[in-house]
Design a protein around this nucleic acid. Structure first.
Lengths: 225, 225
DNA sequence: TGATGTGAAGCGGTTCACAGCC
DNA sequence: GGCTGTGAACCGCTTCACATCA
C-alpha cells in the first residue's frame, strides 16, 4: 500500500538498500530476497518489505525482488536519476575538509561551490573548487541551480547561513554547526553534530565495562540515526 | 526516579544541555528553567525534566535548576570531568580531515594518534599528529590509554578495523565508513554515513515543493537520529 | 515450498496534564 | 504563582505472525 508521508529513517534506509543492491548486482545476482538484504544490513526483513511496499509492489512472492528493476525504482524514488548540485558554506577546517572529501567522490551529487566571507580565503582553491565570496551566494545558487547547502560555519553564524540559503531557494540543508537551527517548513534540514556525537560516546566510557563478548547488530544510521 | 538504561538519544541531548548551560552560565545566569532550555534547543520542556531526573533530582520547584551545579552534574554524568583520548584509523581524505578538525579543538577529548597501513603516509604529520603504522596499533592504544577509535577507512576494511580496535581494548567507536558494522556488546558503536545522509536528502528534492513559509523546530540530533 | 504484503502487537520515546513543592 | 517531577496518553517505528500468491 503506497504512502506519502515518508520518514527520514526510511529514506536513509532506502539509500542503504540501493547500495546493497548495487553490490549484489555487481556480484551477478539477478534476484534478491528481503531476508538476504536484511542479513547484509543487520535489519529485520519485514522492515525492508514495509519500506519498499510504500513505493509500489516490486516483489514477486516466492521469488523475491529483481535486482535491476528494484535498483531502477529506488534510484528514481531517491531522485538519484538526476544530477544534483550542492555548495558548502564556510571554508574553515571543516568546510574545506568536506569539500575535499565530497569533491573527490564521483556520484551524481557534486560540490560546485564553496563560500566564505573572509577576503583572505576568497579566490583560493580547495582541490578544483574555488572559494567564492558569500556576497555572490544567492546569484551563484540561482545561476548554477544549486539545490543543497552544507553549513560548516561557526555556531553563531549558522542560523544566518541557513536563512540566506532559504532565501536563495535552497531546498535542503545539511548542518555541521553545533547548534539547533530553525528552518522554514519547505526546507529539509539535517544536523550532524560531530562534537556532540563524540561527547555522548563518553557517557558509555564512564559506565562500568561489561566483559561478555557476544556480537550484536549495529545501527546503520546517523546519522542519520 | 533514577534509571540505569540510558538511550543514545538521551546522552546526545545531555551534551546539548551542557553546552546550553555553559553558555547561560557565561552570560551570568545563576538559575535556569527547563522551559528556558527547551526554547533554546527547540525541545519540549517535559523531555528535559525527564532526561535530567534520570540522574537525580537537581531542580527546585518554583526556581528551576542551578546553572553551576547542573553543569557539574552533567559534566560528571557524561564523564567529561576526565581527559579522554581517541585515535583515528585511516589517513585518507576523511581521516586527515577529521584529524585536522578534531585536533584543533581544545576540549578534554583529544586526538592522540592517526593510523594507516600505507608506507607512503606513515611518518608524515597532519597538524601536530603523526601518522603511525597500523602494525603498532594495539601497542599504542594500550600505552597511550586510548579509549575511542574513529574509523575512517574504506568500507571494505571497516569491519577489520573495528575488530582490531575491539581486541586492543577500545571501548567506543565512531564509524564513518559507509557500511553497517557488527560490534561486540561491550563496544559502543555509532555510525555516521555522510554519503547516505546526503543522498537521503535527495529524496525530498524529488518531492513537489511546498511554498508556505512557516518556521518549524528542527532536530538537534543525529546524527545521530 | 518460498517469499511477499500486511494487520496486529509490541516497544520506546515524546508530550500532556497535573499533583506537589518552593 | 512558578516550576519541577511524573503517571498516563499518545505516537511512530519495529517486529511478529500469517494469509496470500507464484
Amino acid at each position: 500500500m503506497k504512502k506519502d508521508k515518508i520518514s527520514e529513517v526510511t529514506t536513509n534506509r532506502l539509500s542503504l538498500y540501493l547500495r546493497c543492491l548495487t553490490e549484489a548486482g555487481a556480484a551477478g545476482a539477478e534476484t534478491i530476497s528481503s531476508q538476504a538484504i536484511a542479513e547484509r544490513l543487520h535489519l529485520n526483513s519485514a522492515q525492508i518489505r514495509k519500506d519498499l511496499v510504500q513505493f509500489g509492489e516490486f516483489g514477486r512472492r516466492g521469488l523475491g525482488y529483481s535486482v535491476p528493476t528494484l535498483c531502477e525504482h529506488l534510484t528514481r524514488v531517491l531522485g538519484l536519476d538526476k544530477e544534483h548540485r550542492f555548495c558548502i558554506i564556510g571554508a574553515g577546517r571543516l568546510g574545506t575538509a568536506l569539500a575535499d572529501y565530497y569533491g573527490f567522490r564521483n556520484t551524481n551529487f557534486t560540490v560546485t561551490a564553496l563560500f566564505d566571507t573572509d577576503k583572505q580565503k576568497i579566490g583560493k582553491k580547495i582541490g578544483h573548487i574555488k572559494i567564492l565570496d558569500m556576497k555572490n551566494f544567492a546569484d551563484t545558487v540561482k545561476r548554477d541551480n544549486i539545490e543543497v547547502a552544507v553549513v560548516a560555519v561557526p555556531a553563531e553564524h549558522a542560523q544566518a547561513a541557513l536563512d540566506l540559503a532559504a532565501d536563495a531557494g535552497i531546498r535542503a540543508v545539511m548542518n555541521f554547526a553545533p547548534v539547533p537551527l530553525k528552518a522554514p517548513v519547505d526546507i529539509r534540514l539535517r544536523t550532524v553534530d560531530l562534537t556532540t556525537s563524540l561527547e555522548s560516546l563518553a557517557y558509555f566510557l564512564a559506565q562500568p565495562a561489561r566483559r561478555d563478548r557476544k556480537r550484536k547488530p549495529a545501527n546503520g544510521r546517523s546519522n542519520n540515526k
